[in-house]
Every structure is written in C-alpha cells, then in structure tokens.
C-alpha cells in the first residue's frame, strides 16, 4: 500500500492505495465521489472521463498512483461555487441532453475539455470530439445541441 495524494476539485486529499488501484476506484471508493461512473471498464464508453491537470482522461484506464500530485476535476467539481449549474450543465438541462444520466458526467467533462481548447467548435468538431463517449438513451443530437449552446452559438431548432 502506498499513500497517494492529489488535489480533487480544489481540495487536497490522500488515501492508501494498492498499485493496481485505478483512478476511478480512488475517486469512487476512496473518496465517495460516485458521480464518475464505470460504464464499460475498457476505455470505450467515456462515462469515467475526468480532468487530470486540465486534460480529459478515462479514469478507468489510469492508475491512481499516476495522478500523484495532480489536479483532478470530476463532475462534482463542475457546478458554480454557489452551487448553481455551470453554463455547460445548464445547457444540458435546457436542451434535454440527458435521459438516464449515466453517461452525463463523462459527456460534461469531455464537453468542458473541448470548449477549453476550442471555445467555438463546429458541430462536426463536437461530434468528432465525443467519439469516445457513448450514450445509450437519447442519442447524440441533444448532447451536441447542448454543447453548441454552451459555446454561445445558435442552435438549430428545426429538428424539434
């Protein structure tokens, strides 16, 4: 067992882990942050996406020990400081970008990573960026719509 220390959602945390402890296990089982989901456990589905030092990664395919000293942001750290929904989260609600909500944490984290690097993406860029995030309820149209809206761009409503 090794002590692994990192900053999660702005707070310094540390926990004893095994070498094989995945970052997602550290977050969910160690810290009780169950907002990050394990969908497939094979880095296909993207439900476990978190940010490590500002970059989107699949936390089911990274060891906790490798995040030693890193700044990690999870879905629990995405709302505004006053607890209200952030622009991206609000856009997901406004545009019905979720149904069962299981993929949503990963979708929001991927969307945030995309908009950080590319504040006004085209629809094609949004779709390409989400290729590692799978949603099994709503399809992707409303998710794409939400991300376009969150970037301050017009959202076509013809499909509604």
């Amino acid at each position: 067992m090794t002590k692994v220390t990192m900053i999660v959602n702005g707070k310094s945390v540390s926990a004893e882990t095994e070498g094989r402890t995945l970052l997602v296990q550290y977050l969910r089982e160690g810290l009780g942050l169950t907002g990050t989901h394990v969908g497939c456990d094979t880095s296909q589905c993207g439900a476990c996406v978190v940010h490590v030092n500002g970059e989107a990664v699949k936390s089911c395919t990274m060891f906790a020990a490798e995040a030693e000293g890193a700044e990690v942001t999870t879905i629990e750290g995405m709302a505004n400081p006053d607890g209200s929904l952030s622009v991206i989260q609000q856009a997901f609600q406004d545009h019905h970008g979720l149904q069962c909500g299981f993929c949503t944490p990963g979708m929001v984290m991927s969307a945030a990573a995309l908009l950080k690097d590319n504040p006004r993406p085209t629809e094609a860029e949004v779709r390409a960026y989400l290729e590692g995030n799978i949603c099994r309820c709503t399809g992707y149209h409303n998710i794409v719509k939400a991300i376009m809206a969150a970037s301050g761009q017009d959202v076509a409503i013809a499909a509604e």
Partner: peptide, 29 residues
C-alpha cells in the same frame, strides 16, 4: 416553433440537476 409556456410546452426535467452534478444514486453507487 416549440412553445415556451402553456399546454404543449416542454418542461424541464427535475431529475436533471442531480444527474448533472454527479449526485445521482445508481445501483453501483
């Protein structure tokens, strides 16, 4: 055009807040 009020308007889902903030409670949680 979608309506924004009255009969036929789409309503915001109340469960979205917990799903969007990572506070849903799935079996695995």
């Amino acid at each position: 055009m979608p309506k924004d009020h009255g009969i036929g308007a789409s309503s915001k889902r109340r469960e979205d807040i917990r799903f969007l903030t990572g506070t849903g409670n799935y079996t695995d949680d």
